[in-house]
């Protein structure tokens, strides 16, 4: 439940995967609205990024507990110690409601705490917190983590990595937007239009990470030869790019090492 079948090397792989390979903004496209509507300054982006890292990490952890002990399948087993028969109760339909309540509630509490503890921090950060409560990325990361059924520490690694990846992507887009502001763009495309096209190009760049699999736990009988062929294969027939990468186990065998059953 806490660590599952993951080793520390797997965790590191999972971390890298969450930041780059499955970058929340550029690969899963969650969390754009908040940023696009807001501003095009790098400073704002950094503020948003830090706030998201904080909120997502803690909400991700809290929601793991919610899923494990309240809304997951056979999650209410702990109530049996109190003598209640909970075998058939499935509260999965409440999951969305509970998750968003946890996120919104935590954000609200955080805002109050920051306001009391450090007014300076509140000035720079606190204004974003209400925006972040409804950021797709936060609810999205919690839901993705739940569908993949991670144990506790890999879940923590995953949400932290996702948040950091989101921050990285936001900062990159903001930096480019700042430069675009003074560039000579076609009038119809100025502002939103060119931002979209630019984001599309960036996400194509991130597609180059496809196929690198770092996060499978070293458990099943033969994790063998599946993993890291590192090909750009999935871009397919665009100008015959096809399979550029290198087959074989080039240095990314992180999860293929020692069989660690029963650890």
């Amino acid at each position: 439940m806490w660590m599952g079948d993951y080793t520390f090397l797997n965790l590191f792989g999972l971390f890298i995967q969450a930041i780059f390979i499955e970058n929340f903004l550029l690969v899963n496209f969650l969390g754009m609205c908040t940023y696009l509507a807001c501003s095009n300054k790098l400073k704002t982006a950094n503020g948003l990024g830090i706030a998201v890292v904080f909120v997502l990490t803690i909400s991700g952890v809290l929601n793991w507990f919610v899923h494990r002990f309240i809304t997951g399948p056979s999650a209410l087993a702990w109530l049996e110690y109190l003598g209640l028969n909970t075998a058939n109760i499935n509260l999965g339909f409440l999951e969305f409601l509970l998750f968003i309540s946890v996120i919104a509630g935590f954000t609200q509490i955080l805002e109050i705490i920051i306001e009391k503890v450090s007014p300076a921090l509140y000035m720079s950060l606190g204004l974003y917190l209400p925006l972040i409560a409804v950021n797709c990325a936060i609810l999205g990361a919690c839901l993705f983590a739940v569908t993949r059924d991670y144990p506790f520490i890999p879940n923590f690694t995953y949400v932290t990595g996702s948040a950091l990846g989101w921050w990285l992507a936001i900062a990159l887009i903001a930096a480019i937007r700042e430069r675009l502001a003074t560039a000579n763009v076609v009038p119809g495309l100025r502002g939103m239009g060119i931002t979209f096209i630019m984001s599309g190009l960036m996400s194509m760049a991130f597609m180059g990470f496809t196929g690198i699999k770092l996060a499978t736990p070293t458990t099943s009988a033969e994790t063998g030869q599946t993993g890291q062929t590192g090909q750009t294969g999935q871009i397919g027939q665009i100008g015959q790019i096809g399979q550029i990468g290198q087959t074989g186990q080039t240095g990314l065998r992180l999860s293929n090492e020692l069989p660690e059953r029963g650890q």
Partner: peptide
């Protein structure tokens, strides 16, 4: 499948295992 070698590998391994 062109452009989907890794998925194909996954299928092969699945059957084998």
């Amino acid at each position: 499948m062109a452009g989907a070698t890794l998925t194909g590998n996954g299928v092969t391994d699945a059957y084998r295992m």
